[in-house]
């Protein structure tokens, strides 16, 4: 059973990572980030229940809260990018280089 949970975590995390690194769309990348956070949470919550460790469960709660905050900040930035008329593609963000 233990390995199954780790397999899920691994798959989810690598999917999230792939989305962040490969996708061009900013939104998709944001989703990828959330996916990675969720994957780590799965592993954490599984282990915490096994050991019924309160501190770990508190950690899970913290992680969920932080992931949410992250999403908020991410969305606000993406909205500003949209409003400035440059579309969602990550490709156009190349003013800063060298």
């Amino acid at each position: 059973m233990n390995t199954a949970v780790w397999a899920v975590t691994g798959v989810l995390f690598s999917a999230g990572l792939a989305m962040v690194v490969l996708r061009r769309q900013l939104l998709a990348m944001l989703l990828g980030l959330e996916l990675m956070a969720a994957a780590a949470n799965v592993g954490l919550v599984h282990q915490a229940c096994l050991l019924s460790d309160a501190e770990a469960l508190a950690a899970v709660a913290i992680v969920i809260a932080v992931a949410a905050a992250e999403a908020v900040v991410g969305l606000s930035l993406i909205l500003r990018v949209l409003r400035s008329g440059r579309g969602l593609g990550a490709g156009e963000l190349t003013q800063l280089r060298g």
Binding site: T9, L26, A37, L44
Partner: peptide, 26 residues
């Protein structure tokens, strides 16, 4: 704005890595 977006995504990715590390360590 562009710099902030880059900073955000890099930072968040690092945060994700930290989480995975914490999970493995735990």
């Amino acid at each position: 704005l562009e710099a902030a977006v880059k900073y955000f995504f890099a930072g968040a990715l690092a945060g994700g890595l930290f989480l995975l590390g914490m999970a493995l360590y735990y």
